[in-house]
Write a protein that binds this DNA or RNA. Sequence first.
DNA 1: GTCTATACCCGGATAGAC
DNA 2: GTCTATCCGGGTATAGAC
Lengths: 178, 178
Amino acid sequence: MAEDRVTQAVGVARELLEADGPDAVSMRAIAARMGIRAPSLYKHVPDKAALEAHLIAAALTELGHALRDAGPELADLAAAYRSWAIGHPHLYTLATAQPIPRDRLPAGVEDQAAAPLLAAFEGDEDRARAAWAAAHGLVSLELADRFPPDADLDAAWAAFVAAFSPRPERRAQPRPGA
Amino acid sequence: MAEDRVTQAVGVARELLEADGPDAVSMRAIAARMGIRAPSLYKHVPDKAALEAHLIAAALTELGHALRDAGPELADLAAAYRSWAIGHPHLYTLATAQPIPRDRLPAGVEDQAAAPLLAAFEGDEDRARAAWAAAHGLVSLELADRFPPDADLDAAWAAFVAAFSPRPERRAQPRPGA
DNA sequence: GTCTATACCCGGATAGAC
DNA sequence: GTCTATCCGGGTATAGAC
């Protein structure tokens, strides 16, 4: 039952992050919760960035699972996306507000997270990316408390879903160059 | 020609922010560029947040002007939005990634920035907000270097504009409860 | 309105003993 | 694999002299 020290450190880092935000995640604080001193952490992990990479991987994996378990419709995916992000604000921000360390991440994590949305757009990467950005924008502005106090966020999400829902008459037209 | 010290401090803070990012904006650094010491700044400004409020107000005002000077079509507004944000990445982030200090901002700044987009949607706040979020999402993911290296961002922007362009057959239907 | 000196925090990371 | 001691850096802000 002896838990691996790295796993333990990642778990503690996550607790600190989710509870009190990024500034609460220091090597000293992590170590303290493990009952050791900060320098000892460096026997298990090369640097702080390595711990953050673990957190980012966990975030992408869990968000991907949340989407995978949601219904196939855009409305379902949007609801799942919003729900996971709002439920894990600091983890979500960590995973989206900075370049991801692709070399320190397990292979496929990024694609696996993106798959459900890509499928909903039948492989159209451009539309899927625009929809992802829209969902991300809605979430991040909500998390940053940047909407006016009286804004109806549910209605904004509905407008987003409506905008990206299929348009029969347009899709019937062959795209030039396609 | 004696420039007001506050104005000067704001200008210097902006230079530091735009050149080297948020971590480069310290009271010490601002003062140094003004040829004084950090403590002297506090004779002119109550605290650092006051300087940041000035920067946020400037960002919103300029972004609003960029949108106002663009064409009325969503495609024009989107291009202007993206262009201004990419041209002032740190300023843009400062103004969007945190709650805005509304009490320290001149009245109307926020509304004035939002007006062009709201007009493009003929006053439909929900759709305007969703479109704003989409543009913000595209910009912030681009600034954070969060798209895959091979992503076609121009195409993603085009997909966003297409999604939010008017749909005659839907708009002809009366909305229930409207 | 500027200065020096300082108080009070915080952080990541390393050296070397055990 | 843990420790203590320490190095390096940073920051906002105040007190009190001039």
